[in-house]
């Protein structure tokens, strides 16, 4: 057995046959806090042993964080002016 094979063997054994392929599909449930106890334990065990999946989770988190920080561009002036014009006519009526 190579070291890599041993690692995968341990991974499979400890995390109850949770493969990377299945693991990546659990990430959102994990982040949303909707995994029940045993799946969450398996998720954590796998995470602790697998670099690929650790990087994957980090990528997802970075993606979410970048999405949350998207810059807000200002409203185009002509749109704003048109809206304000309508606002005035509504307020005066």
């Amino acid at each position: 057995m190579t070291r890599d094979e041993i690692r995968i063997y341990v991974l499979d054994y400890l995390a109850g046959r949770l493969t990377c392929k299945k693991w990546v599909e659990m990430v959102t449930d994990y982040l949303e806090g909707s995994l029940s106890l045993w799946p969450r334990i398996r998720f954590h065990l796998h995470l602790g042993l697998c670099n690929g999946c650790r990087h994957y989770l980090q990528q997802v988190r970075t993606t979410i964080k970048t999405t949350q920080q998207l810059p807000r561009e200002p409203t185009p002036p002509h749109v704003r002016e048109e809206l304000i014009r309508r606002f005035r006519s509504m307020s005066s009526s």
Partner: peptide, 21 residues
């Protein structure tokens, strides 16, 4: 799915593993 081996784990360290950001 082609990034995983038949046993469901990530394939090759350099090409298929997600990289660190």
């Amino acid at each position: 799915p082609s990034r995983f081996r038949t046993n469901g784990h990530w394939k090759d360290y350099w090409t298929d593993y997600p990289q660190s950001w």
